[in-house]
C-alpha cells in the first residue's frame, strides 16, 4: 500500500467574489522511501499541495490517505472515527512529518536552538535530551556556532538551515521541503542536498519543491505542475538507474 495517496484533490480559495483554483483535481501516489521533486511555474499550486500533504491544510474536495489513515474524505463525516482527529493530526505533524516552509516560519524573539527545540517540546521530550537533539540537528546543517542567535540576527540562508534543522530534529519518516535551497549559495545547497540524499538512503520518504533542475535531479521522480494540475510525472535518470 502507498505511503500517501491523493485522489481528485482540489483546493479552492475564495477571495472576495473570485474563486482561485489552486488545485484542480490531483491524483498522486507516493510509496515509502520515494524521493520526489515537484516543479512548476510560480502560482501553479506546489505549496498548496505540500500543505495538504503535510496535514496543515484541508482540501476543498477529494480524498487523502496517509499511512493507511484517512486524513480527508468528502464522503466521511467530520466526526466519523475513520478520520484522524485534530489531536491525531497534531501527532502526525509532530512525529511523522518534517516540514520545511518556503518562508521558513521561525518564531521571532527566541533563539535558533529554541526554535529547533519546539517540535521536541510538543513531543514531550525531556529538557536535557531536547537540547542535545536540537544541537545535533543544528550541527547537521553546520549552524552550531549560531545556535544562540535569534532569527533576525541570521542571514536568509542561515534561517533556512535553522528551518531544515527544525524539520529534521524529530527524525520524521516523511520530509516535505518547500524550496529548501531557494536562499542558499551553491556550496551550502550542495551540503543540504547531500543531507537529503543521506536521509533518503536511511529509508525516509522525501518530497521537495524546487525551481532548479540540478536540485530536482537528486530525486528519483519529478512531478511537473501546471495551473493546479499535474502536467507530467516521470522518473529521473537516477530513478531509472
Amino acid at each position: 500500500m502507498a505511503l500517501l495517496e491523493l485522489k481528485q484533490v482540489t483546493k479552492v480559495y475564495q477571495v472576495g467574489a473570485v474563486a482561485v483554483h489552486a488545485l484542480r483535481g490531483i491524483d498522486l501516489m507516493v510509496e515509502k522511501n520515494e524521493y520526489v521533486s515537484v516543479m512548476g511555474p510560480s502560482g501553479s499550486g506546489k505549496s498548496t499541495l505540500m500543505n495538504v500533504i503535510g496535514c496543515l491544510d484541508t482540501p476543498t474536495s477529494g480524498t487523502y490517505i496517509l499511512d493507511g489513515k484517512t486524513v480527508h474524505d468528502d464522503r466521511i463525516e467530520q466526526s466519523s472515527n475513520g478520520k484522524l482527529s485534530d489531536d491525531e493530526l497534531a501527532f502526525v505533524r509532530n512525529q511523522k512529518i518534517g516540514f520545511v516552509f518556503q518562508t521558513f516560519n521561525l518564531l521571532p524573539r527566541i533563539t535558533a536552538l529554541h526554535n529547533v527545540e519546539l517540535p521536541l517540546i510538543y513531543a514531550g521530550i525531556h529538557k536535557k535530551d531536547r537540547i542535545e537533539m536540537a544541537k545535533e540537528a543544528l550541527r547537521k546543517v553546520n549552524l552550531e556556532d549560531r545556535m544562540h542567535h535569534q532569527p533576525n540576527e541570521l542571514s536568509g540562508g542561515q534561517r533556512q538551515r535553522v528551518a531544515i534543522a527544525r524539520a529534521l530534529v524529530n527524525n520524521p519518516s516523511i520530509i516535505l521541503a518547500d524550496e529548501p535551497t531557494g536562499n542558499l549559495d551553491s556550496k551550502t545547497s550542495r551540503e543540504i542536498m547531500q543531507l537529503m540524499d543521506h536521509l533518503h538512503d536511511e529509508g525516509n520518504t522525501i518530497i521537495l519543491v524546487t525551481h532548479e533542475t540540478d536540485i530536482a535531479k537528486h530525486a528519483h521522480r519529478v512531478v511537473h505542475f501546471l495551473d493546479g494540475l499535474i502536467a507530467s510525472d516521470e522518473l529521473t535518470p537516477k530513478g531509472k538507474g
Binding site: G54, L56, D86, D87, A90, F91, R93, N94, Q95, F99, F101, N105, L106, L107, L118, P119, Y122, A123, R166, N170
Partner: peptide
C-alpha cells in the same frame, strides 16, 4: 496568530 499557526504546524495540540 502566526506564532500559533507555526506551533500547531510543529505539532502543538489544541489543549496546549
Amino acid at each position: 496568530t502566526k506564532e500559533i499557526g507555526i506551533r500547531k504546524a510543529l505539532g502543538a495540540k489544541k489543549n496546549i
